[in-house]
């Protein structure tokens, strides 16, 4: 088959996939920190609200969430562009898993650190943002890395609400050319290349939050 005709389409689809993924990761990270912090610090009411959010989005099918926001929500008068729906649902999904990661990492900060903060008279807010979170973020990074790549792969589901992402484009080309083997191989390679880019980006962020290998590895130098 003649690739030169289809390459621009594939690249455009890949671009849409990357846009949706990155936007979902960024919004999802904000949601993850917001709800994860509420779980730990929010008091009985707010932490229950955060718990409901995480459990609803972790406990239901992402595909059905997409359908619900795309087909059901307009029935009550709320409708968004497909791409907006895709990003919001993917972000909420990633945020649900991310909030659990944030909660777990925050709870793993040792009591001794919190007592030291208290002895120095830091208030709750300062203890959270100056002491707990900077230490917890390092713990979160590997799990966030997995979640980012998971989000990239799950983004293919948005093709089912008529968004022309990489998967949607691949389907269209296959329907035109009937060359399943080539088109799906190329599509897999594209996803793999994008996840490599994500992995490298995450490694760089991880390196930055670890302060260039000094913290927190416990080897004496």
């Amino acid at each position: 088959m003649d690739w030169s005709a289809y390459l621009p389409m594939i690249l455009q689809g890949a671009g849409v996939t990357m846009t949706i993924t990155l936007a979902s990761i960024v919004i999802g990270a904000v949601l993850a920190f917001f709800f994860g912090i509420l779980r730990v610090e929010g008091g009985p009411v707010l932490s229950t609200i955060a718990l409901c959010y995480t459990e609803v989005f972790r406990g239901t099918s992402l595909l059905v969430q997409l359908f619900w926001f795309y087909y059901a929500l307009p029935l009550v008068g709320l409708s968004f562009e497909p791409i907006t729906t895709g990003i919001l649902v993917l972000a909420a999904h990633a945020g649900g898993y991310g909030a659990e990661i944030v909660r777990g990492a925050l709870s793993s900060v040792s009591t001794q650190q919190l007592e030291a903060a208290r002895a120095l008279n830091f208030n709750r807010f300062q203890t959270l943002f100056r002491i707990s979170l900077p230490q917890a973020i390092v713990e979160m990074m590997p799990a966030f890395g997995n979640l980012a790549i998971e989000t990239l792969k799950l983004s293919s589901l948005v093709s089912l609400i008529s968004i022309a992402d990489l998967t949607f484009t691949a389907q269209s080309i296959r329907n035109l050319t009937l060359d399943s083997a080539s088109i799906y191989s190329v599509t897999l390679l594209c996803y793999f290349a994008m996840s490599l880019v994500l992995m490298v980006a995450i490694r760089i962020i991880e390196h930055v939050v670890r302060r260039g290998d000094v913290f927190p590895r416990s080897a004496h130098s």
């Binding site: 001794q112 007592e115 030291a116 002491i131 900077p134 230490q135 390092v138 913290f215």
Partner: peptide, 11 residues
């Protein structure tokens, strides 16, 4: 207070 396990902030 000075603690038995120092409790410096590692970051």
């Amino acid at each position: 207070m000075v603690f038995q396990s120092f409790n410096l902030f590692p970051h």
